[in-house]
Design a binder for these strands. Structure first.
Length: 806
DNA sequence: GGTTAGGGTTGG
């Protein structure tokens, strides 16, 4: 370990190897012989560990000579020390501000910051095998560095910045440029921010990594900067990144989620930060900071104007070494004719824009010079924002000059007025309305695509093999949608821009899960959780646990409790009835029972209940919910065989009635079991709402109990194959249609389970070769899913039914 | 480790 800790400050001196001579900080010179010197001082500043290109990690600290006389006599009693590599990390962990340290094995260089920090003209560098630190923790600091409390950040109002101070600030962005390359090693972001103090401060951010630059999408975004330096420039206060700076940004719209945009995995963010962002949003709204410069839809663009455009990329083409063509749309129709820029077909990447061209919805954007670097990274389907785009009127090439001019868009070189472009994550709050518009167009496009468009037939993919007559009669699939789309290849599907619907013909190369009972899942429509159906063993455990903990009968204010001796059962059973039942003998009543008979006696017991003297209960059996306390899963299965709507409950220590853990079914209904979502259901049992319900189905029972009902669904993944490649497609939303079964029924019905198995055996007979498997006509939905901030394209089999003999 | 830029329209 290169950092050694000692308990007593005097030990520091005894630790020094004898060949080292102690030298005071103020006496250090560039020419000093470092090999035989040690330096002692107090840590007065300690920076964070930051990554640097050459040596991976680096940490800067300032140490001050101990001798007070020395300090007053010399300005140079404090010196910068830079620790490299693992030493930087060790130092960060083991040393705190205020500790006394002794350094050996350093090298001396000229300090580049002498002018600004007024410290020693030299600095010390600690790296390599000889570098060695001894530390004596100060009384206040804890002995192990790991227990030091998390740093608390204070934020300075922008009007109170002092030159040369290193500060943390929040601000609303009033101007910004996307990062551009400098003449040095870094990219530079230029921005201007303001806050409630009304000061406007320019910021210059340098980083060689693009992903470290602030992710600013529009004026009004909120930015937080840590460890930036205040400086005067041209009579104005500015902020400049320093060593160890960091940033996060937020959407500026009131009510949008306060989610930090950052590439950093570790950043500090707490409730106080959330409040700061919310307060800044409110303030910005009151100052109309956001509204002034929102982006302009294509429908409002006028010739010669400069504007910001939010759009989706359809295709792109490289025109020459200084120009890339982007074809984009925002779902609105331009009021002026749009120029269609032709590109060499082999240079064009992405989807055909025919549909959009016809509607005067395709904007052709020529991107020049410094913007090519960003443009090259763009993929068709991405959402983009272009800043300071120029609408240029132009006479279409080859047309007489009296033809009305068409609009083409130029993203000129340079960065004036924030000119630039960037992709916007598709889950951004201000993209959602655009996405809805595009989706509605995509549906229209699918509907309008005509099968009988003979001119297209030749270019469209035709399947390598037509479906044989025998196959057709025997077993086949049909598309049940009215899309009337041309059939395309799987390769074509993979280049399509979501959202879109395609028709394909493919065989199944493989599918998951192989054990078909595993394809039955539970799905929460609220939080979209998908989980496996638990097996009986784990359900039985939940029941047994509930039994063990339910010693006392429940006492509920909404229920009347009475005990009844059953001569047949030879035991006392406590019943809980809803008050409604006592007051008003209607079919809306519920009964809650507590008892712990064994399975055999329960059978008698339930029979007894349907006979006198319990005639009133007969009504409830027919339509009502029935609640039991303290039964095992086996007993529950026996009772539910003959009765509808059984809700297993237990009694808590407070004698309140509780539902069992929601990993077990909350409702038994004949053979069917229903589950509640563990995230979206109310965690505590509340008074059941029993009035106004005519039919006690699973929906209404769930509602009365505050349970979010989970839906059964079938989920399979197919690996599809045709001559052009393979593609993984899910089957779930339309799985019931595909198999012609109900998922809920399938969960409790062997016949239906066999049906699913048989269909899969036809699609993919065990031991069959690809050639033996049937071609399936499938409708595929291509859509995107956001996962961990990444957009993923997914394929799903929809609108398809299996037909034929099984 | 200490530079770079420090907002303010364009060529196509």
């Amino acid at each position: 370990m290169p950092v050694h800790t000692v308990k007593d400050v005097n030990d520091l001196d005894t630790k020094v190897p004898p060949h080292l001579q102690h030298v005071s900080i103020s006496n250090l010179k560039l020419t000093s012989d470092c090999l035989h010197r040690s330096v002692k001082g107090k840590v007065v500043q300690k920076g964070p560990v930051v990554s640097c290109r050459q040596r991976e990690y680096l940490l800067k600290a300032v140490i001050q000579g101990e001798d007070p006389q020395q300090r007053s006599a010399s300005q140079h009693a404090s010196i910068n020390v830079i620790f490299f590599g693992t030493l930087a990390k060790d130092f960060s962990q083991s040393v705190s501000q205020g500790d006394i340290i002794l350094l050996a094995g350093f090298t001396i260089s000229k300090s580049p910051s002498e002018q600004t920090d007024k410290l020693h003209p030299c600095h010390l560098e600690m790296s390599g095998p000889d570098a060695c630190v001894h530390v004596c923790p100060s009384a206040g600091s804890s002995s192990s560095g790991s227990t030091t409390s998390e740093p608390k950040y204070t934020y300075i109002p922008l009007s109170e910045l002092k030159p040369r101070s290193i500060v943390n600030v929040y601000g609303v962005v009033t101007f910004f440029k996307q990062p551009f390359p400098t003449k040095g090693t870094d990219y530079c972001s230029t921005l201007k921010i303001t806050d409630q103090s009304n000061a406007k401060v320019g910021c210059t951010i340098f980083s060689e990594k693009l992903e470290d630059h602030p992710k600013i999408f529009r004026v009004g975004d909120i930015i937080r900067l840590h460890r930036v330096k205040a400086q005067m420039f041209n009579g104005s206060m500015t902020l400049l990144t320093t060593l160890g700076w960091s940033t996060i940004t937020f959407d500026g719209m009131i009510d949008s989620p306060v989610e930090p945009r950052t590439s950093s995995r570790t950043f500090h963010f707490d409730e106080a930060d959330k409040h700061t962002v919310e307060a800044l949003r409110q303030w910005a709204a009151s100052q109309s900071l956001l509204t002034s410069e929102s982006t302009v839809p294509l429908s409002s663009v006028q010739p010669k104007m400069y504007f910001d455009l939010t759009c989706q990329l359809l295709s792109k083409a490289c025109m020459d070494s200084r120009c890339i063509l982007l074809k984009v749309w925002d779902g609105t129709e331009c009021g002026h004719s749009l120029l269609n820029v032709a590109a060499a077909p082999d240079a064009l990447e992405g989807e055909s824009t025919c549909f959009q061209d016809q509607q005067n919805m395709t904007a052709n954007i020529l991107v020049y010079d410094n913007h090519l670097e960003v443009a090259r990274m763009l993929q068709p389907g991405m959402f983009l924002r272009l800043y300071n785009l120029h609408a240029v009127p132009q006479t279409p090439p080859g047309q007489p000059p009296d033809v009305p001019q068409h609009l083409v868009f130029h993203l000129h070189g340079g960065t004036s007025y924030g000119r630039g472009l960037r992709s916007i994550p598709s889950d951004s709050p201000d993209l959602q309305s655009l996405k809805r518009v595009l989706e509605s167009h995509a549906e229209k496009q699918a509907a309008e695509a005509e099968v009988n468009d003979g001119t297209l037939l030749d270019v469209w993919y035709t399947p390598p093999e037509t479906v044989g007559e025998a196959d057709t009669e025997d077993f086949y699939t049909v598309q049940t949608c009215d899309h009337s789309l041309q059939q395309v290849s799987l390769a074509h599907v993979k280049t399509s821009i979501p959202p879109v619907v395609c028709h394909v013909q493919a065989r199944v190369k493989s599918y998951q899960p192989q054990k078909l009972y595993q394809c039955l899942k539970l799905f929460c429509p609220q939080c979209k959780t998908v989980k496996d159906v638990p097996d009986d063993e784990s359900i039985a455990q939940v029941f047994e646990e509930a039994l063990r903990s339910s010693n006392q009968p429940c006492s509920e204010h909404w229920a009347v409790t009475s005990s009844a001796d059953s001569h047949q059962l030879d035991r006392t059973v406590t019943m809980h009835m809803s008050c409604d039942m006592v007051l008003d003998n209607t079919h809306l009543q519920m009964i809650f029972l507590q008892g712990k008979p064994d399975a055999h006696t329960l059978q008698h017991f339930t029979v007894q209940f349907t006979q006198k003297p319990f005639t009133r209960l007969l009504l409830i059996y027919k339509t009502g919910g029935l609640f039991f306390i303290g039964v095992t899963l086996d007993e529950m299965c026996i009772i539910s065989g003959s009765h509808k709507n059984l809700v297993p409950v237990c009694s808590g220590e407070d004698r309140r009635m509780r539902l069992l853990d929601l990993s077990a079914p909350f409702l038994f209904c004949g053979d069917k079991r229903y589950y509640g979502c563990e995230h979206c259901s109310q965690s505590s049992f509340v008074d059941p709402v029993v009035s106004g319900v005519d039919v006690w189905d699973e929906q209404n029972v769930a509602k009365a109990l505050g349970v979010q009902l989970m839906q059964y669904m079938l989920l399979l993944q197919f690996e599809l194959e045709d001559e052009t490649g393979t593609l993984d497609a899910l089957l779930w939303e339309d799985a019931e249609r595909f198999f012609n079964v109900s998922s809920a029924e399938t969960s409790a019905n062997q016949e239906l389970q066999d049906r699913v198995q048989n269909i899969m055996d036809r699609i993919h007979p065990s031991g069959s070769s690809m050639a033996e498997r049937p071609w399936l006509a499938l409708c595929l939905s291509v859509y995107t899913v956001e996962e961990n901030g990444r957009t993923q394209v997914c394929y799903q089999i929809t609108n398809t039914e299996t037909r034929g003999n099984l």
